[in-house]
Measured scan of single mutants.
Amino acid sequence: MGFKLLSKLLVYLTASIMAIASPLAFSVDSSGEYPTVSEIPVGEVRLYQIADGVWSHIATQSFDGAVYPSNGLIVRDGDELLLIDTAWGAKNTAALLAEIEKQIGLPVTRAVSTHFHDDRVGGVDVLRAAGVATYASPSTRRLAEVEGNEIPTHSLEGLSSSGDAVRFGPVELFYPGAAHSTDNLIVYVPSASVLYGGCAIYELSRTSAGNVADADLAEWPTSIERIQQHYPEAQFVIPGHGLPGGLDLLKHTTNVVKAHTNRSVVE
């Protein structure tokens, strides 16, 4: 069995187990497998329904001669939608809004960016022009300005110390501490036991640490421990890039980060 097929099978099995364990909360999309990078042309966006009122959005972007996937989250909030992270750029984010209108038909009224990198804030200006209120932590807003990236308009308070959590509509926002970046936030959907790890969490097929220019490698494993301790009931975990899975993604990420750190020390 090929690795790609095995990865998709694991996603399907995880979703099936969740649907059985929580039949009222989960209505997993039966329309197909989780979209992969090879299936999404740059400039297009796919939506994948995880649970009743919960979707991931998947886009792709060219970077350094390669094409990478990027995940975000959409959560229903009454007759409105909360968006977590842009679709990595203005063109993708405009396509995301169009796809949401086509498939869901509810307005996106608020959006949260989970850290300051372009795959999370690139497209904020498109959201703002569409009347979406954009939010991020003060740290993310400051770092985005320093980096020359787009800056969300509103500040999220109460997320300055490791372990801080605040309720934001249908989700809980959690600051686990520094990891992929010093400002990275985690998003949890309690009604569906869905954990969105953003770039602080890796997919299972990833074996290298990737972009760690703004990471705190020493603190990252401790931050992941905080996530595990705060959300032990999480059933569906979405990484910032690639295929979702279960809580095993947290341990896998820790292993990859520690291996990278150990290699760096040896070198």
Results as ranks from 00 to 15, higher is better:
Phe3Leu: 13
Phe116Gln: 03
Leu159Val: 07
Ala90Trp: 11
Arg46Asp: 15
Met18Gln: 02
Ile201Ser: 10
Glu172Cys: 08
Lys102Tyr: 10
Arg120Glu: 12
Tyr135Gly: 01
Asn262Glu: 06
Pro138Thr: 14
Val108Gly: 07
Gly43Ile: 06
Ile17Val: 04
Asp77Met: 03
Trp88Asp: 03
Lys251Glu: 09
Leu82Trp: 03
Ser155Ala: 09
Tyr48Leu: 10
Arg263Asp: 08
Leu143Asn: 05
Thr153Ser: 03
Thr114Ser: 14
Leu24Asp: 09
Val28Lys: 12
Phe26His: 15
Asn184Phe: 00
His154Gln: 14
Leu13Ser: 10
Arg46Ala: 11
Leu10Met: 13
Gly105Tyr: 15
Leu159Phe: 07
Gly131Arg: 09
Ser181Met: 00
Ala25Gly: 11
Thr140Glu: 01
Ser16Lys: 15
Ala200Tyr: 01
Leu156Asp: 01
Asp77Trp: 13
Ser113Lys: 01
Gly198Trp: 00
Tyr48Glu: 09
Val108Cys: 05
Thr93Asp: 00
Tyr196Phe: 03
Val237Pro: 01
Gly89Met: 13
Glu44Pro: 06
Thr254Ile: 04
Gly197Ile: 12
Ala98Phe: 05
Gly245Met: 08
Gly43Ser: 11
Val124Met: 15
Phe3Tyr: 05
Gly148Asp: 10
Glu219Met: 14
Gly148Pro: 13
Gly158Arg: 07
Gly2Trp: 09
Gly169Ala: 12
Tyr175Ala: 09
Ile20Pro: 05
Phe63Trp: 09
Leu83Trp: 01
Val266Gln: 11
Ala215Phe: 05
Pro244Cys: 10
Leu217Ala: 14
Tyr12Phe: 05
Val37Pro: 05
Leu10Ile: 08
Ile74Trp: 00
Thr14His: 05
Val11Met: 12
Phe26Cys: 11
Glu233Arg: 10
Ser70Cys: 15
Glu80Pro: 02
Asp77Phe: 13
Gly2Phe: 14
Phe3Gln: 05
Phe236Gly: 12
Thr93Asn: 14
Val124Asn: 06
Lys91Leu: 07
Ile151Trp: 08
Ala15Trp: 13
Ser208Cys: 02
His230Leu: 04
Thr86Tyr: 02
Glu101Thr: 10
Val265Gln: 12
Asp183Met: 00
Gln229Leu: 10
Glu267Met: 05
Gly122Leu: 15
Ala95Lys: 07
Asp85Val: 00
Ala192Val: 08
Gly78His: 06
Phe236Thr: 08
